[in-house]
């Protein structure tokens, strides 16, 4: 099949790898994993350039997690300028529908065709520039956003891969199974499966409770022949870092505060190990 040139493929020609973070189920930590993945890739080399695109149009969480809630996107002659979350270094480019809303309570109530158009714009009209990695965070399900995304990215097939996130309970695993069927149908390589919210450490006595059961991710990965990247316990410190990051400072960001605070969490070390696994697996 000859790869056609499209506005999307032209724009993303200077992107080396595209990693799509998926999960059939909502609230399992896709955005948190996307954020961590982007941060770890960013920190993996002093020159690494990373982009993060949030295609969850009706529930964008990425701006909050990066602490850039309330920032705006500027128009340039060469397209929309993404929000650089690391300030002047400009190695971490971020784009989300959240930047286009006037206030945080505004809802985006869109049907499919409008979502499709927005996703095309995010891919074709944002001045991404040269990127080593573009991480794409998706909404739950296997519907308009996912189908559109994969269609627009089809000409870039050799660069595409995905990471699937789940939580251990059966209800989540069932939806994730659907998501795996989806990746097969659209021929999207899966780098591996991450089990999130696997156990919770009591801050008082250190006892580990499996609040959402345990072990389900490993079992599913084995059964489906997917690489199991590891499990992440619920880390309240991480929840706090990703939750309240936005209130700290706004336009004055000089360093990359979220990254520094993230590095202090217990999850960071674990996640870096997984990222090494992911990178080794990228073709």
């Amino acid at each position: 099949m000859a790869l056609q040139e499209t506005p999307v493929s032209k724009r993303l020609a200077s992107v080396k790898r595209i990693i799509i973070v998926l999960s059939g189920k909502g609230g399992v930590g896709k955005s948190s994993v996307s954020t961590q993945l982007a941060l770890c890739l960013y920190a993996s080399s002093p020159n690494a350039k990373v982009g993060i695109l949030d295609v969850d149009l009706t529930g964008p969480s990425i701006p909050r997690m990066f602490g850039v809630d309330g920032r705006g996107v500027h128009q340039s002659s060469d397209g929309w300028v993404p929000v650089y979350t690391d300030g002047t270094e400009a190695r971490m480019a971020c784009m989300s529908v959240g930047f286009l809303l006037k206030n945080k309570g505004d809802s985006v109530v869109w049907r499919g065709p409008k979502k499709n158009a927005m996703i095309r714009q995010f891919l074709a009209d944002v001045r991404w520039g040269e990127l080593d990695y573009l991480v794409i965070d998706t909404p739950p399900g296997t519907s308009d956003e996912h189908i559109s995304l994969l269609e627009h990215l089809a000409p870039l097939q050799p660069k595409l891969s995905s990471v699937i996130v789940t939580t251990p309970q059966a209800v989540a695993l069932m939806d994730v199974m659907k998501c795996i069927s989806f990746t097969r149908a659209v021929n999207l390589p899966v780098l591996g499966l991450i089990e999130n919210m696997s156990g919770y450490v009591c801050p008082c006595c250190g006892e580990i409770s499996n609040i959402f059961s345990t072990g389900g991710g490993q079992g599913l990965a084995d059964k489906e022949g997917i690489r199991f990247l590891g499990s992440l316990p619920v880390d309240t410190e991480l929840v706090t870092v990703l939750d309240s990051a936005g209130v700290v400072e706004e336009d004055t960001a000089t360093g990359f505060e979220v990254l520094e605070r993230y590095r202090k969490t217990a999850t960071c070390g674990r996640f870096e190990g997984m990222v090494r696994g992911i990178m080794a697996n990228i073709p």
Binding site: T142, D144, H146, S181, A185
Partner: peptide
């Protein structure tokens, strides 16, 4: 089967 993905766009849903 419960593994089947329903890949539907809006109008079908």
């Amino acid at each position: 089967s419960s593994r089947d993905a329903v890949m539907w766009r809006g109008p079908k849903k």
